[in-house]
Write a protein that binds this DNA or RNA. Structure first.
Length: 230
DNA sequence: AATAGATCCAACCGCCGACTT
DNA sequence: AAAGTCGGCGGTTGGATCTAT
């Protein structure tokens, strides 16, 4: 069946959000709450697609976001959950308060894949790599991006079946992988726990209240929010 | 200092399932 | 039952930034 576009593309902004747009979106959601994303842009005076507003709010402006570098503990949780759930980033994010699916997905693709390869573990199956592959992955000069299976873990022709085959592998991976699966999964929480440690002074201040977080985000130029892990 | 290549991540795209008409 | 709407998800991309030469 045909499907109409989610918005009038000719009259919507695209690309990076401006501070003013952020302010409008935050102000609107503060006043009216989340929901009805389709009508939100017009109501909030934004020339944006509703989907774009939702994404911006969920991935960046939401006051309960943790932000900052991932901890070793979070790394382990992500790895273990990925072994069980596969690329179900939203489910994984649901177990990591303050983290978004997009953030975890990016972090997986840029850091954890590499980390697992360095350990000689296939990030897709969580099984030990074959000898040659492991050697290649462990070689200092070989970056994970150079491994075809890494850049596109699911080829276009297999993407549909990607998860199911993963799921098949996953059960046996529980026995073959070198990962401790003693993971106690707590129910998803609505708000971040008090132990959500900020990683910067700014964040430490920001975590004092949701409002403060939003205000800090709006004060801070977009690119200064970028965090690198060198 | 210049610049080419590598890396990171915010944002977009298209698809899907649930729900409504 | 069919068609349309909407929110949500995962994959991908483009541009900014960093690093190496």
């Amino acid at each position: 069946m045909g499907r109409s576009p989610c918005c009038e593309k000719a009259h919507t902004n695209k690309g990076a959000w401006t501070r003013e747009e952020d302010q409008r979106l935050v102000a609107y959601i503060k006043a009216h709450g989340e929901g009805c994303w389709r009508s939100l842009p017009k109501a909030a005076g934004l020339m944006r697609c509703g989907k774009s507003c939702r994404l911006r709010w969920i991935n960046y402006l939401r006051p309960d976001l943790k932000r900052g570098n991932f901890t070793e503990e979070e790394d382990d949780v992500i790895i273990k959950l990925h072994q069980i759930l596969g690329n179900k980033w939203s489910l994984i994010a649901g177990r990591l308060p303050g983290r978004t699916d997009n953030e975890i997905k990016n972090y997986w693709n840029t850091h954890i894949k590499r980390k697992l390869l360095a350990r000689g573990i296939d990030p897709k199956t969580h099984r030990p790599l074959s000898g040659a592959a492991a050697a290649a992955a462990a070689a200092p000069s070989s970056r994970p991006e150079d491994q075809p299976a890494v850049r596109s873990s699911c080829s276009p022709e297999t993407s549909g079946a990607c998860h199911s085959s993963d799921d098949d592998d996953r059960a046996s991976a529980l026995h073959h992988g070198g990962i401790d699966l003693n993971l106690s999964i707590s129910p998803p929480r609505e708000t971040p726990p008090p132990s959500s440690l900020p990683t910067t002074t700014q964040e430490a201040e920001a975590t004092t209240s949701s409002t403060t977080v939003v205000e800090w985000k709006l004060r801070t130029p977009l690119k200064e929010n970028k965090m690198y892990h060198y």
